[in-house]
Amino acid sequence: MWRRCLLTGVSAWLAAITPASAFIAYVSNEKSNTVSVIDTDSWTVTRTIKVGQRPRGIEFTRDGKFVMVAVGDDDTIQVIDAKTQQIVDTLPSGPDPELFAQDAAGKIMYVANENDNTVTVIDLEKRARIGDIQVGVEPEGMTISPDGKMLINTSETTNMAHFIDTATRQIVANVLVDARPRFAEFKRDGSELWVSSEIGGTVSIIDPVKREVTGKITFDIPGLRREAIQPVGIGMTKDGKTAFIALGPANRIAVVDGASHKVTKYLLVGQRVWHMDFTPDEKYLLVTNGVSNDVSVIDVAAQKVIKTIQVGELPWGITIAKP
């Protein structure tokens, strides 16, 4: 009893000194050639970092020490030190890198090279290119299965999700999805793989064991033409119960029930909404709005947009430090 009381007291004290939402978000601004740093406590841009040309894919390293940003027109990936917020290194990504994925240990990185129809494998410690995998035309979306065994790459003109065995680096399956697949995301329990098709206007639900499409999410927004609905970014809560899908020029985020795959709500955000990331406590979801040059903050529990933050021109990707 006494012990429990003490413990409760300590944790209450800890909670009191740590602000509930003090996280740092990094946003790549495709046209400005900058990265905006957002403090999620004050919801302000605290710094703008100049980077290479056409920054798009952006992600923290697994240890949270660095932010990697793909600067496609410079054919490299730049590494930003999260402490000093300075560029400290570059990675040999291959031509025109756009999106990438890291393995769980943060040792191996896989990069989609759109110009080459390849996925490049990089050893993050040695900063060296250790292999290439031939995939379909214009590789883009990249993700790794929760068990680390399968790398998924989507190819935009081939219209497939390629299943690549991370041990052998061989393609073991190809699943046809709708036109221009942009982004792939697993449920945390590995039971489903979701792939968004920008031009097809759908999200395919793929059974990762059978490796076939088992369902499709479609979107119907009254008063909006079908062509304007272009799903790109996907964010799923850790429990897999709720998913958020960015609908591009439809200027909305679709809220989707993770079990039934039904759209429950559309949230109006900025123009041409693209990618997103959760704060680690999953209280907030930040989405990038390319044409309106801002980031919308969504209260995840309330499913409401609570804030808009101006960033650079054509904000594209976003990553938030995982403590």
Binding site: G136, V137, T157, T158, N159, M160, H162, I171, N174
Partner: peptide
């Protein structure tokens, strides 16, 4: 060429 890149998988 693009069709054949895709065709390789099919």
């Amino acid at each position: 060429e693009d069709n054949n890149t895709t065709g390789k998988f099919l």
